[in-house]
Design a protein around this nucleic acid. Structure first.
Lengths: 219, 219
DNA sequence: AAATATATTTAGACACCTCTAAATATATTT
DNA sequence: AAATATATTTAGAGGTGTCTAAATATATTT
């Protein structure tokens, strides 16, 4: 398998390559990796030897499909570990990164498969980023209205439809805000009202409310 | 902190130093580490520079208290991860080692403290070896008779007092053997009979039986 | 105690990954 | 389009951790 350093480079290239479809510059990579441009050039050559990236001098690097796959699997591991740390080991959002950064390099197919199962196949990490599946597919978590979600699901608030002052004040009063974790406990068939919990407090909301809050499902 | 290689050497020295109180030979270390004697000599010099071991040429190495402490903490981590893998992630005895070997090098005080708590402070790993505490103390797990243990505890069978053929046949018939995990569910005050479970099967045993089985408690 | 066998260390080299300083290519100004 | 600035690569070197082959020390035989 790949070395720790190689894996970190692959991951960094993946993150930087996201937006543009063109190569990642040596300088950008150097900054991301907190190293010198010359070191980057050296490493890129090695990655290129192994067909993990395609590289033309002075033109930047792109991940090959082999390289992209490796990067995505590391990201999958990183995000699953983050879920574990936050959900099971009482880590807070800001504490997880450093440790997940180490855990993501552990090599064991079985470990990660069992961890995924243990965590009940979460779809996103504690920061709301999607967790790639075993085949490397990254679901674009779709934004749904809260009233479309079934009971038992856990969601993250990502936006609102109604942006009137009235509604925003209502949300504020009830502790509903961007990034808040909303768990759906019950849905009343009769009037489609919902019993949800936010910050361990229960709250009943009408359909009028639930149909104006955008969320992404976490599981 | 120490490098991966350094940590592995410290651990190996610790394991080899156990029996005799004298230094560990270069060759023994080389075999344990699956490397060459010359590499060992090189590394020993570096460890000696860092005061992790005391070393006299041709006389072998001994861990300093600093080195011993580091080694014990790695072992603590290794064994806690083994418990996690077996108890929570459906790993079997023989599968855990390789993965724990990697996980033991993760650096995070909080991680290991929370993991310990999450696992409910286990006293031994799945192989029955004791888990050192945060201060580096390694409890010598005492061998007790099963009838001395309180309900709720999980134990490992480590021996028998009565060695008659009759008794051994009884044990065999009921799936009680060395290394088996025995969980104590109830203890009847009246006759001191016990309800235990082995391999997920329940079994009621009399005091006559429980007072002839040696166990070590796992928690 | 000398001869032989075994254990250990030293010397020199190599792979991986990093660095600084210098050289070269590309981009931007004028 | 020449001059300047910026980005990138090359050259040479260092640290870590490994190796082989040779030298040296310790242990065992005779």
């Amino acid at each position: 398998m790949y070395s720790l350093s190689e894996e970190n480079y692959l991951k960094a290239i993946f993150h930087l390559q996201k937006q543009p479809n063109q190569g990642v510059s040596t300088n950008a990579l150097a900054e991301q990796m907190e190293t010198k441009a010359s070191s980057v050039t050296d490493m890129i050559k090695r990655l290129s030897e192994k067909d993990l990236v395609s590289y033309k001098k002075y033109k930047g690097v792109k991940l090959s499909s082999k390289g992209r796959n490796a990067a995505v699997q590391i990201i999958r591991k990183h995000r699953l570990w983050e879920v574990f740390l936050v959900d099971q080991l009482n880590f807070s959002w800001d504490e997880v990164h450093e440790v997940a950064e180490q855990l993501e390099h552990i090599k064991s197919k079985k470990l990660i498969r069992e961890l995924d199962k243990f965590l009940d196949y979460p779809k996103m990490d504690p920061h709301g980023d999607p967790i790639p599946d075993e085949d490397g597919n990254i679901a674009v978590a779709e934004k749904l209205l809260l009233n479309e979600i079934n009971p038992g699901k856990t969601t993250v608030c990502v936006g609102v439809k109604d942006t009137s002052t009235h509604f925003l004040k209502y949300l504020d009063k009830n502790n509903i805000a961007l990034g808040k974790i909303i768990h759906i406990k019950e849905k009343e068939a009769f009037d489609e009202s919902m019993l949800i919990s936010i910050d361990h407090k229960e709250l009943r909301i009408s359909k009028m409310v639930s149909s104006n809050i955008y969320v992404k499902t976490k599981n």
